[in-house]
Simulated assay, not measured.
Amino acid sequence: MVSAVFHSPIAAAEGSAIKTEASPANSTGASKLKDAKTATPAWQEQPTPGFDWSGLLLKVLPPIFGIALLIGIWAMVSIGTASSIPSPLETWKQAVVIFSDPFYSKGPNDQGVGWNILFSLKRVAVGFGLAAVVGIPVGFMIGRFEFLSRMFNPLISLLRPVSPLAWLPIGLLVFKGANPAAIWTIFICSIWPMIINTAVGVQRVPQDYMNVARVLNLSEWKIVTKILFPSVLPYMLTGVRLAVGTAWLVIVAAEMLTGGVGIGFWVWDEWNNLNVKNIIIAIFVIGIVGLLLEYALIKLATAFTFEEVKS
């Protein structure tokens, strides 16, 4: 005999309602749904950030104050020396006259400031380029092989502190000309930062890299191009940046002694003419050109430098 139990529809509906009211999960879900409907979107809650005026002022005001301080001291020195040192305003007026026609030519010893800068940059480029061609490979070899490091370290320590002008007579004696002597002086004074920084970079390559290269039986060329060069590049570019600053300093001193067209000769020639305004202008020109050279190399080094080295 089979028995069946029938439930009333009214009772079933009442039981379902009781279960729904008693269930905490359903209660929580309903409250979450209600909160979601009434919540404000996240993009509406976040205020739009305004322009960072404090950061801009922090970048702009200190350089302006520094330049104003320099001009103020310059003006006081001009007043204190009874105008033996020209004032900033007088020097500015003279600079406007000079740069109105920077590329005039009135003979071999009377050239515009533009030609003087270009001739000096040409000498720096030749001497600096030769120093890079020789110094960077020598630095790699000194850093790579301990025997060469021990052999060259005493020579570098002996020759590096020698004053640039001490090399100039040697260049005049060997090359029999002022222009190659100036290039020689730039070369011999620019080569040391490249050698030292490149060698230090090679020596600081992690030993694990070299062990892996030895296990893989890599050739010396692949070790240099695949392992050493990417690791040494930040150090090498630092040496290049230091070397170009040294080269620009040296060319001014060398041209004062050798003569011809160049920014150093222009300074010396204006001194012989007792034209102090042009000397001050030349000082600013030398500083600005050196600053631009260093800034360009810093940007180049930043582009090829790892993030941890940049910081």
Rank of each mutant, 00 (worst) to 15 (best):
residue 291 L to Y: 13
residue 102 P to M: 07
residue 230 P to R: 01
residue 58 L to H: 12
residue 159 L to C: 13
residue 23 S to V: 06
residue 97 V to R: 14
residue 196 I to N: 09
residue 295 Y to E: 13
residue 262 G to F: 02
residue 70 L to N: 03
residue 49 P to V: 12
residue 236 M to C: 03
residue 66 G to L: 08
residue 209 Y to P: 04
residue 203 Q to A: 10
residue 291 L to C: 09
residue 79 I to T: 08
residue 210 M to I: 11
residue 128 F to T: 04
residue 24 P to F: 07
residue 257 L to K: 10
residue 195 I to E: 07
residue 305 T to M: 10
residue 155 L to R: 07
residue 153 N to M: 13
residue 32 K to Y: 13
residue 90 E to V: 14
residue 128 F to Y: 14
residue 124 V to E: 01
residue 239 G to K: 01
residue 33 L to G: 11
residue 85 I to W: 04
residue 231 S to I: 01
residue 203 Q to E: 12
residue 73 I to Q: 02
residue 298 I to W: 04
residue 53 W to N: 11
residue 19 K to V: 14
residue 27 S to D: 13
residue 226 K to E: 11
residue 25 A to W: 14
residue 171 G to W: 00
residue 14 E to H: 08
residue 290 G to T: 10
residue 298 I to H: 10
residue 56 L to K: 13
residue 193 P to K: 08
residue 132 A to G: 15
residue 281 I to C: 02
residue 180 P to G: 02
residue 276 V to A: 08
residue 141 M to Y: 04
residue 139 G to I: 07
residue 97 V to K: 15
residue 238 T to M: 05
residue 13 A to D: 12
residue 75 A to T: 11
residue 161 P to T: 06
residue 35 D to E: 15
residue 164 P to F: 00
residue 2 V to R: 13
residue 175 F to E: 08
residue 213 A to M: 08
residue 39 A to F: 09
residue 301 A to L: 05
residue 254 A to T: 01
residue 3 S to M: 10
residue 102 P to D: 05
residue 35 D to I: 06
residue 227 I to F: 01
residue 147 F to H: 07
residue 19 K to L: 15
residue 288 I to P: 07
residue 148 L to Y: 09
residue 218 L to W: 08
residue 147 F to M: 12
residue 233 L to R: 01
residue 82 A to T: 11
residue 277 K to T: 10
residue 255 E to N: 08
residue 73 I to A: 02
residue 273 N to Q: 03
residue 35 D to Q: 14
residue 304 F to Q: 03
residue 206 P to K: 10
residue 256 M to Q: 14
residue 41 P to T: 12
residue 274 L to Q: 10
residue 249 L to W: 02
residue 92 W to M: 12
residue 277 K to W: 03
residue 258 T to P: 03
residue 285 V to A: 03
residue 74 W to K: 06
residue 71 I to V: 14
residue 67 I to Q: 04
residue 226 K to H: 09
residue 168 L to F: 05
residue 71 I to P: 01
residue 268 W to Q: 13
residue 64 I to R: 01
residue 57 L to T: 14
residue 71 I to D: 02
residue 191 I to C: 07
residue 261 V to T: 09
residue 263 I to R: 00
residue 17 A to N: 11
residue 109 N to R: 06
residue 263 I to M: 11
residue 93 K to D: 15
residue 170 I to M: 15
residue 59 K to N: 14
residue 216 L to V: 09
residue 98 I to N: 00
residue 186 I to W: 00
residue 56 L to D: 06
residue 305 T to W: 04
residue 254 A to H: 00
residue 10 I to Y: 12
residue 132 A to W: 10
residue 155 L to A: 15
residue 180 P to S: 09
residue 43 W to A: 15
residue 79 I to C: 01
residue 75 A to F: 06
residue 276 V to I: 11
residue 276 V to S: 02
residue 192 W to I: 02
residue 184 W to S: 09
residue 169 P to D: 10
residue 19 K to A: 15
residue 79 I to N: 11
residue 243 A to R: 03
residue 175 F to T: 04
residue 222 K to A: 06
residue 103 F to E: 05
residue 52 D to F: 04
residue 214 R to G: 11
